[in-house]
Write a protein that binds this DNA or RNA. Sequence first.
DNA 1: CTCCAGGTCCAGA
DNA 2: TCTGGACATGGA
Length: 285
Amino acid sequence: MYTYIDPKFNLKNTLLCGQCFRWRLHSDTYYGVVESHLLGVRQNNTQLHVTVSPSVSNDQFVRDYFNCAFSSDEILKSFPIDVYVKQAMVASEGIRILKQDLWETIASFIISINKNIPAIITIIENLSMQYGKKIDVGTSLDLKDHYSFPDIATIARTTPSALRESGMGFRAEYLSKTSQMIEDGVIDLSNLKKMGIDEALSVLQTLPGVGPKVANCILLYGCNRYDAFPIDVWMKRILEECYFKGNKVPLKKLGQFAKKYFGPYRGYVQQYLYYWARSQGKKNK
DNA sequence: CTCCAGGTCCAGA
DNA sequence: TCTGGACATGGA
């Protein structure tokens, strides 16, 4: 059991805001797989309690995942405070962008194409069950089995038709080819953090199944590039409704607007707006 | 049953 | 360069 402290952190909003797909609430604790461990995470005011199974002597990978050394104060101060951002900051309070594994992020967001979040979660769970490694959680937890996210080499030598058994449909060809390109060293992903945003995006978009939206997600969630700004159907709606009087605007123009208006940490603003808009919809049901 | 989903790709204008 | 339609599958 490890304890972390950060007054401006909201676990629920952070795990449910759409940046990750492997967390489930079980009574008062969120369970999720990070690398080859099952984490159980619970928040008490400013304290974050984390259990790691199997246990480890060094919990650095957990601190890295939650980006514990990093304060989001400066970033939040950079937000342009208009009526919409103001509401978003209330609804999405305490969201922190996680630092997720690059390969898992690439694969997850290829799988996410044209799927709703519950379906994405199911597919990733199926895929992990088939091709990941079973995690030894001991006998203390009365939970179902958990599996690590499958590694690149495993996916690279699995046929697309076999991958389809997890329910990912036509995305199987994308995932298969992309995994092989990375595995074969056709593409070099080691310098993504240093590149300019446009260069990083175009490098990622040489991967099959990776277009502008998925590339931005990969940079934002897998590389801590807060200057990445994913625009999906929801963000498109939000931007058009709030900043263009409801008129239809091409994706390219929306991206240019976001870059200018939301500034260098626009990826963070995006996350707050996205979760705000989605929680609005749920209230009306 | 129908609609739609954290889009991408390709063909044709 | 821009736009429309196809693409598998399943949750709501």
